[in-house]
Design a protein around this nucleic acid. Sequence first.
DNA 1: CCTAAACAGGATGTCAATGTCCTGTTTCGG
DNA 2: CCGAAACAGGACATTGACATCCTGTTTAGG
Lengths: 146, 146
Amino acid sequence: MFSQTVEYALRAIVHLAQHSPDPQKTSEIAAATKVPTAYLSKVLQGLRAKELVCLQRGIGGGVSLAKSPDDLTILDVVNAVDPIRRITTCPLELSSHGVRLCSLHRRMDNAMLAIEDAFRSTTLTELLQDPNPSVPLCEEATPGAR
Amino acid sequence: MFSQTVEYALRAIVHLAQHSPDPQKTSEIAAATKVPTAYLSKVLQGLRAKELVCLQRGIGGGVSLAKSPDDLTILDVVNAVDPIRRITTCPLELSSHGVRLCSLHRRMDNAMLAIEDAFRSTTLTELLQDPNPSVPLCEEATPGAR
DNA sequence: CCTAAACAGGATGTCAATGTCCTGTTTCGG
DNA sequence: CCGAAACAGGACATTGACATCCTGTTTAGG
């Protein structure tokens, strides 16, 4: 349903948000998010192209969010790497369907609209503040030990 | 978002439902739905494996629905050819997340759940009875003007 | 029983997504 | 200025989705 690249991009952005505004090295993100380092590098370049992250070369460099976690939604990330393709015209190219989708494609597009809306309404900050015992990307502290 | 194969399968099923219970030849379905004939054949074989359609060889043969359009949902078709993969365990394999997904994956799974529910609640009969000026797969009659 | 109709299914081709590797370029700190 | 750190990006490998082609098998009907 969602591409692997979307999953990777979201993990990376979440990791960055957790450490915002400190820059993180690609290798650090890769290790923390269990994403192949070399591939993550490509994914991050895609995020930079959409100006979601800043990439800084050289010693002390790394990756940082280009905008506040308050202003960054899940949809921003998804659309940056693998845009949700809404159905805007009849896939069969029936001219009379044009903008007025038939019941089948109307329902399929409604499904995608629902996802778009859900993702647009969730910011990174909300994700991290979610009262959920499992913190994104993080193993829970083991109660007894540690 | 949805694979091409899902799109093709839905078109074929809709076409069959429109002509139910008469069997249709694969080539007829292909022409009506604008799906490559040889590929449609494979897709239909997948639908047969899930017992959604019956395939009959020889003269007078063809493809027919294996169940009533009343009992056939969009979800049945989607899951037959390209199942919606819900997120049931942490993709990072964090043991403490296990069944209790973190906020990120919880939201992603909720999105897929919403689609599942929407598709499960729509039968083929409902699709065809939808008060929509555009009939699935069919070009509208051109009424002189407009 | 023979033949044409119609599906069955293996072989093969193409392409984009995913993933790896290696070398180049930039940048900071000393 | 020099060198190590860190990203940049091209080349390449792998895999599965999508698609085509061709031959085989089944079946109804004359």
